[in-house]
Computed example of a mutant assay.
Amino acid sequence: MIRILIAEDQAMVRGALATLLDLEDDFEVIASVGNGLEAVERAKVLLPDVALLDIEMPKMSGLEVVEKLRSAVPSCRCVLVTTFARPGYMQRAIKAGARGYLLKDAQVEELAAAIRRIVAGDRVMSPELMMAAMECTNPLTDRESEVLRLAAQGMTTRELARTLCLSEGTVRNYLSETMSKLSTNSRQEAIKTAESQGWI
């Protein structure tokens, strides 16, 4: 029996997924939660075989949940299910250790088959998302992405420098480089562009 935890903030979608997957003879939905933090907490206790995760959830994103569970519950295979065909999300999901990345508009039979393949040791990615990811690579380094991600939270240059243990001049250089790489004229434009691609 494949034991599944579902984390999805939309109650109707969460309920439908749980109902449909429970109909499979070899599946058991052992938990269904509405935010990322609860997903991590329940997974630590219940030790599911598979965690089916939405990307954008309250308290903790699906990508953050994947990173947490990789060390907290290494036996759990994480599968991201999303409506967002943003190439950067897939790249970050693979880097975080996700075993699957699928679009929500897939048929339940496709999802069930993907879960079985993932439990058997495969990695399953949506072909549409694979094509988008190959066509659009993130030009930012890990450090530039980190600086921009924190800037998107409203941090000033001084706060960024203190948080990252860098000088304010170095932070300004990173921000200037991100604006140049993304062909934008301001920090806010750079943040907007990077967010639209799923790079931060």
Rank of each mutant, 00 (worst) to 15 (best):
L5D: 07
L5Y: 05
I6M: 07
D9N: 13
D9G: 14
Q10D: 06
R14E: 02
G15R: 03
L17F: 10
T19K: 11
L20T: 09
L21R: 11
E24I: 05
D25I: 12
D26C: 11
I30L: 14
S32Q: 11
S32R: 06
G34L: 07
L37K: 13
E38T: 13
A39F: 00
V40D: 04
V40G: 06
E41L: 14
R42V: 05
K44P: 01
K44N: 08
V45C: 10
L46M: 12
P48E: 09
D54M: 11
I55T: 07
I55R: 09
P58A: 06
V65T: 04
V66H: 04
R70P: 00
A72Y: 02
S75R: 12
R77W: 00
L80M: 11
L80C: 12
V81E: 07
F84G: 10
F84M: 15
F84T: 11
A85R: 15
A85S: 13
G88K: 13
G88S: 12
M90S: 08
Q91Y: 01
R92F: 02
G100R: 08
G100H: 10
Y101A: 08
L102G: 01
K104G: 09
E109P: 03
L111G: 09
A114E: 08
I115S: 05
R117Q: 00
V119N: 10
G121N: 00
G121L: 04
V124A: 06
M125P: 00
P127W: 11
M130I: 09
A132N: 10
A132T: 07
A133K: 04
N138R: 15
P139G: 13
P139M: 11
T141H: 10
D142T: 10
R143C: 06
S145E: 03
L148K: 05
R149A: 09
R149T: 02
L150A: 09
M155C: 09
M155A: 12
E159T: 09
L160F: 03
A161Y: 15
A161D: 07
L166K: 15
S167V: 11
S167Y: 06
E168K: 15
G169R: 14
T170W: 10
N173T: 01
Y174A: 01
L175Y: 04
T178Q: 05
T178N: 05
S180K: 08
S180G: 08
S186I: 08
Q188S: 14
Q188T: 02
A190T: 10
K192D: 06
T193R: 15
G198H: 06
I200T: 05
